[in-house]
Amino acid sequence: MINFIDSIFAPVLQFLNMIISKLAGIGTIAAKGVRLDHYFGVFGLLGPTWTGVITSFLAAFLFVFILFMIQKYNRVLLWFKDLIKWW
């Protein structure tokens, strides 16, 4: 019986594990920080003040993107939950 129940919920658990791994990958990028000098040499010419402003903007954008992805995956998870309740 336990194997049967595990086989029913296996796709949901695989999906949740995929979500966790994707968010962990994005989190490591956010933790390292984005060095604009390595990717866009033009921003290095602006000076440390403007580089800090642009880096802060990119960090804020990345944070909002992470929240958007969590919300998107949460909707799918709730859809799975409603589907299971109906079943």
Results as ranks from 00 to 15, higher is better:
F65K: 12
N74M: 09
T55G: 14
F63D: 14
I26E: 10
Q14T: 03
K85W: 06
A24S: 10
T51F: 02
P48C: 09
V76A: 10
D37R: 08
A10K: 12
P48W: 06
I8E: 00
S7C: 02
D82F: 02
P11H: 04
P11M: 04
I20C: 05
I20F: 07
F57Y: 14
L46G: 04
F9R: 08
L36S: 07
I66H: 06
I8F: 00
I66K: 10
L16E: 13
S7E: 02
Q71C: 04
K32I: 06
I29Q: 07
F15I: 01
W79V: 01
I26D: 09
T49A: 12
L23H: 08
A24V: 06
F43H: 04
K22S: 03
G25R: 02
I5D: 00
A60Y: 11
F61N: 11
F4K: 01
L58A: 05
T28P: 03
V34L: 11
L45V: 09
A10S: 08
D82E: 13
V76E: 10
I26R: 08
K81M: 05
I20G: 00
I54Q: 05
K32C: 05
W79R: 10
W50D: 14
G47T: 10
I8T: 00
L83W: 08
K22F: 03
K81V: 12
V64W: 14
V12D: 09
I84Q: 01
N3F: 00
F63V: 11
T55P: 11
W50I: 15
V76L: 13
W87Y: 06
L13F: 09
I66F: 07
A30S: 08
G41E: 02
G44C: 04
V76Q: 12
L78S: 05
N74Y: 07
V53E: 13
D82L: 04
P11F: 04
A10R: 12
R35K: 10
A10E: 10
I84K: 01
M69W: 05
P11R: 04
D82Q: 13
S56E: 15
M1P: 00
V12F: 14
F43Q: 03
T28C: 04
I5A: 00
D6M: 01
F43W: 11
F9Y: 12
V42R: 02
V64H: 12
W50F: 15
F40N: 00
G41K: 07
L45G: 03
A10C: 02
A59Q: 15
A30M: 14
L83Y: 08
I84Y: 08
L77A: 13
I29K: 06
K32T: 15
P11E: 04
A31Y: 12
K85G: 00
